[in-house]
Simulated scan of single mutants.
Amino acid sequence: MSDYILGDIGSFNDFFCRRIKPELRPLDLDESHLMAPCDGLLKVYPITDGLVIPVKQSIFTIADLLKDGELAASFEGGYCLVYRLCVSHYHRYAYFDSGEKSADVVIPGFYHTVQPVALEAGPVFTENARQYTVIDTKSFGRCVQMEVGAMLVGRIVNEEMAPAAVMRGSEKGHFEYGGSTIILLIPKNVAIINDDILKASESGVETEVKLGECCGTSGS
Rank of each mutant, 00 (worst) to 15 (best):
L152G: 00
D104Y: 08
P163D: 04
A162I: 10
S98H: 13
M35H: 09
E120C: 11
Y95A: 08
S58A: 15
P54M: 10
L34S: 01
D14F: 07
D64F: 02
V124N: 02
Y45G: 00
P54R: 02
L71T: 10
M151E: 10
D49G: 11
P187Q: 14
S180A: 14
T61S: 15
P108C: 05
R155V: 01
S220R: 08
Y111P: 05
M161E: 10
S218W: 01
H174E: 05
K56A: 09
M35Q: 06
E213Q: 12
F96Y: 07
R155C: 04
D195E: 14
E100I: 15
K21M: 06
K188G: 07
L6R: 12
K172V: 12
S2E: 12
V166Y: 06
D14S: 10
V87C: 06
P108M: 04
V82L: 06
A103Q: 09
N189E: 15
K210H: 11
L119P: 00
D39A: 10
L51F: 04
P46I: 12
K67C: 06
L152N: 02
H174P: 02
C143N: 03
A165S: 14
V148Q: 01
C214K: 10
C17R: 04
V55A: 06
E120A: 13
K138E: 11
R155F: 02
G154S: 06
D104I: 09
D30R: 15
Y177R: 13
A150N: 01
H112Q: 14
D49I: 02
D136Q: 10
I20Y: 00
T113S: 15
F16C: 03
L184I: 05
D68T: 06
P46W: 08
D68L: 02
D14P: 05
K188Q: 15
I107Y: 01
A129V: 06
F16R: 03
L24K: 13
V190Y: 11
S201A: 11
Y4P: 10
S220H: 04
S32W: 08
C215E: 03
Y177I: 15
H91Y: 09
K67W: 00
S58N: 15
E147M: 03
D68S: 08
D64P: 01
G219D: 00
A94W: 05
M146C: 04
G154W: 00
F175Y: 12
A191K: 03
D196R: 14
L41A: 15
P163F: 08
A121Y: 14
T61Y: 08
L51P: 01
V117F: 13
R142M: 07
A103C: 07
D196F: 09
A162T: 11
A191C: 14
Q57D: 14
T126M: 07
T113Q: 08
S11P: 07
E31K: 12
